[in-house]
Amino acid sequence: QQSSQSASDHGQILSKQKLQELAREVDPTLQLDEELEELILAVADDFIESSVNAACHLAKHRKSNILEAKDLLLHLERNYNMWTPGYGTDELRT
């Protein structure tokens, strides 16, 4: 049985403890109250769901039955201006 601190108990994919760790890393003085924690976790959940949806559309467009990192990468670059090196392409970008 999982503890009450576990992420999956609340249908969340990330525990509040991990979120607090990340918050401390960004700004050690930043304090998140419970309501804000819930809100940020919901935003993360939405981000994941919409990104996977968009990647699925792109994989379908490629007529592939495999969801690949390059599908997600394209969505992230186009919509969030996010580029993660080492993913999606067979060759390194120089």
Partner: peptide
């Protein structure tokens, strides 16, 4: 779509 490439999960985690 039936399969997920392992890199997909890692990239998704980094992006989130």
């Amino acid at each position: 779509i039936e399969e997920i490439s392992p890199d997909f999960i890692t990239l998704l985690s980094h992006a989130a």
